[in-house]
Amino acid sequence: MAEPVINEGPATAPAPSVSPTRVWDLPTRLVHWSFVIGVAFSWWTAETARMEWHRWGGYALLGVVLFRLYWGFVGGSTARFGNFVRGPRAIGSYLRGAWQATPGHNPLGALSVLALLGLLLLQVVLGLFAVDVDGIESGPLSLYVSFDTGRACAEWHETVFSVLQALILLHIVAVLYYLLFKRQNLIGTMVTGKRVFDAEMAPMTPASTVKLLVGVVLAAALTYAVSQAFQF
């Protein structure tokens, strides 16, 4: 009987005076969508045995992961680990619904970020040392390990990918849950970098372009060195 209130629609929308708040800087968003493309590409090239392309996909992902780790220390405020990784108490209060939404990851989402990033790094590193069953195809760093170790890395490379797939699925389910049940479009925010909050909020603080360039050069240089097995 009291239900019709729901149909008020526009009246419950935020007041027009509340403008979108900046949540994610451009590098963080580019990193996110690069992961989507990179993982999909690597999956496809592995399934279709395009190993030369698979190595390129791995290098690209390695570069992006390294940059994201760097950005986690010097990047925009919402990208920094020190700002969004929180303890169990914060996670508990978030789960009880007692968490005040602010621009950036919530305490539970922070765990997802750490897990996904950590697994991605592990996966790429395993690939660098992996050797195929015939000893014909291999990651660039496999020359530092034996055939048997390289084979073990290849098997772990497969196992970790399954775990990564499961976590990505969980991530997608969580994002859809927010979209459908909590009426919060996280995907749009990851595209535009902005979100409309119920009230005016202090936006994220971006990092300087110099820091961005330093990070890109560092990540690219290290990735290149790895791809050459540190032999020049």
Partner: peptide, 8 residues
């Protein structure tokens, strides 16, 4: 396979 890895 081991031998091929060595050659590679």
């Amino acid at each position: 396979g081991d031998a091929f890895k060595t050659v590679r």
